[in-house]
């Protein structure tokens, strides 16, 4: 039983991470029907934003009070990236065939990864290196905030990492805020209207362009929080971290029903728990850590076969 609860908690903390990123995919897809492959990179840049904030402002100080500032740094980095990306890469392609923005997304993704890999230690892009930032070509240690990453908590036979609590907590808080934003604010309702029917929404006087920017920014905020959480959990970050995380988060969004925000959260948790359980309970040579990503992928295929609209997605008749 202990192992089960242990894996459940592992799964939930992993799943919270996926859920936080998945929201970004789902919100943008809901409005633009665009898979923003580069969203994984927004997450990665969030983590680097937090790291930079810590290195530049606090120079190794890991007190708890630095954490909120780091999160703000992460959010600023991610949101800036996402908004620029929308403005310069995607917006010009609004009316292009669907293939075009998908390919652009790949390009943006590779570009951002390389930008970080090659230039992180050159911020602010001169040979003068006032901040003494580390080289991003390999893994970089992430500041360990004392209270959040201190020794794990033992409850009976179950070990709970503090970072896991942070991640799950972050998901809970973010979900609550998100729910409030979408259902209770004017902007949020505008977003719902646009995702129902962009043309009608435009006729009703909603500024669709602004809503789209907000959608990108919203996803970026959650991705930034996820970036910090990932850094705290793994102790280090690297420029490649967005690829697999992005892939998983997209899988989570599809499992939950793409376009549906609650679905993204649920999908993330389901995926995380599935992975953890697969690691523990699939017997024989195909169990264990090395295959967990494969099982996540199998889950995606199964969902596509048996419930293509996802767990919470409504079956929709496309207009003919």
């Amino acid at each position: 039983m202990d192992t089960f609860i242990q894996q459940l908690i592992n799964g939930l903390s992993l799943g919270s991470l996926y859920a936080l990123i998945a929201v970004g995919y789902t919100v943008v897809y809901g409005i633009l029907q665009l898979i923003n492959f580069a969203h994984g990179e927004v997450f990665m840049i969030g983590a680097f934003g937090a790291l930079t904030t810590s290195l530049v402002l606090f120079n190794g100080n890991t007190a708890l009070w630095t954490l909120p500032v780091m999160i703000i740094g992460a959010v600023v980095a991610s949101v800036t990236t996402a908004v620029l990306m929308e403005r310069f890469a995607y917006r010009p392609l609004r009316n292009a065939p669907r293939l075009a923005p998908l390919i652009t997304a790949i390009g943006v993704s590779v570009f951002l990864q390389e930008l970080v890999r090659l230039n992180y230690n050159k911020v602010p892009f001169t040979s003068w290196n006032p901040f003494n930032l580390p080289d991003a070509k390999s893994r970089i240690p992430f500041p360990q905030i004392d209270v959040v990453t201190g020794p794990a908590i033992q409850v009976g036979g179950v070990t709970i990492q503090r970072a896991a609590i942070f991640t799950i907590g972050a998901l809970v808080i973010c979900s609550a805020l998100l729910w409030y934003f979408i259902n209770r604010t004017k902007m949020g309702r505008g977003m719902q209207a646009v995702s129902q029917d962009a043309d009608t929404a435009r006729l009703m006087g909603i500024n669709v362009d602004r809503i789209i920017v907000v959608a990108f920014a919203l996803g970026a905020v959650l991705a930034a929080v996820a970036g910090v959480a990932q850094g705290l959990q793994n102790n280090n970050i690297d420029f490649r971290m967005g690829f697999l995380a992005g892939l998983k988060a997209f899988t989570a969004a599809v499992i939950g029903g793409i376009g549906n925000v609650e679905g993204a959260v649920l999908g993330g948790l389901v995926l995380g728990v599935t992975e953890a359980m697969a690691t523990q309970y699939i017997p024989g040579q195909f169990g264990g850590g090395p295959w967990k990503d494969v099982w996540a992928f199998v889950l995606l295929i199964l969902v596509l076969v048996f419930r293509p609209q996802g767990l919470l997605g409504a079956k929709e008749v496309d207009r003919a």
């Binding site: 392609l93 075009a100 652009t104 390009g107 943006v108 590779v110 570009f111 990864q113 390389e114 090659l118």
Partner: peptide, 15 residues
């Protein structure tokens, strides 16, 4: 800079 340029290339071509 191969990959960097290549990412940029994809974006610019599509545009």
């Amino acid at each position: 800079y191969r990959l960097l340029l290549f990412g940029l290339l994809l974006v610019l071509m599509m545009r």
